[in-house]
């Protein structure tokens, strides 16, 4: 069983909502990512989304854009990200790791070669922002062939037909983008999100996570009341860069407060 599936199965038994932190690999420092992943796992992360920085992150807001720029300036690459996952797996065999990023760094390696390397490194799922389902048939098949989960986004504007398409391809979980905008944007209409998540849950056989615009424990708790998973990215990335020398510690601290808020 894929680590993502077993994690969600265990959470379901425990009647808990998954907490999924997102960090950009290589930011704020090349060597901060591995200790941060361990700190996040320690602080209650159920899945870790590891951002693969790209020069043109068109779906991301300013916080993740800057984070990607810093990581690239320090020399982060997709191959190095895989190296970090391999190192993480040498001491942690339980926390699922999902790579999130854009298509081109994967295409530069080659889809099949990348999938082999990701599996070997211990990656559990891959979310490629600019591979919507209509462009993802081959890549999804490659991932599934190695037991990795292709993870897809769904948006407020996704039609029932598209949700059905994603339902056929998706493994692991789907990631519902909770607002019209880029990562880290504006304010959430929680009631609206709740309605949409209910409709998606009815149509999709895998757990439904919610992200984009969740900044704190209070919002995470409200969203977590009806979603299977809550994703926190920009707020966490910002907290880490605000305290760069202690990024890992800061990330762990930030996540524990969210975890505590969600669980109380």
């Amino acid at each position: 069983m894929n680590r993502i599936d077993s994690t969600f199965a265990a959470l379901k038994t425990a009647k808990k909502t998954a907490l999924i932190p997102f960090i950009t690999a290589g930011d704020p420092a090349l060597d901060s990512t591995l200790p941060t992943m361990h700190a996040l796992a320690q602080a209650g992360a159920d899945v870790i989304e590891l951002g693969v920085p790209f020069s043109d992150p068109m779906a991301d807001g300013p916080v993740i854009q800057r984070s990607s720029e810093r990581a690239l300036a320090k020399g982060m690459t997709l191959r190095k990200v895989l190296g970090i996952v391999r190192d993480f797996r040498s001491t942690n065999q339980t926390t699922p790791v999902v790579l999130m990023g854009y298509a081109n760094p994967i295409e530069a390696i080659g889809q099949a070669k990348f999938v082999d390397a990701a599996e070997a490194a211990g990656v559990d799922g891959v979310l490629v922002v600019d591979y919507p389902p209509e462009e993802a048939d081959e890549f999804s098949a490659l991932l599934q062939g190695k037991g990795l989960a292709p993870i897809f986004l769904l948006a407020p504007t996704s039609t029932p037909e598209r949700i059905a398409h994603v339902a056929r391809l998706a493994r692991g979980y789907v990631y519902y983008v909770s607002l019209r905008g880029v990562t880290g944007a504006g304010h959430l209409d929680v009631d609206d999100v709740q309605q949409k998540v209910a409709a998606i849950k009815a149509a999709v056989p895998v757990p439904v996570g919610v992200g984009f615009g969740i900044r704190d424990g209070a919002t995470a708790k409200r969203i977590g009341a009806f979603a299977d998973a809550v994703v926190i990215g920009s707020a966490l990335v910002q907290a880490m860069v605000d305290d760069t020398p202690n990024a890992a510690q800061r990330a762990g601290g930030f996540l524990s407060t969210v975890r505590t808020a969600m669980d109380c």
């Binding site: 600019d130 996704s158 983008v177």
Partner: peptide
């Protein structure tokens, strides 16, 4: 059409 789901509609 290599875009995020948010643009598809």
């Amino acid at each position: 059409t290599f875009v995020a789901e948010t643009l598809i509609a």
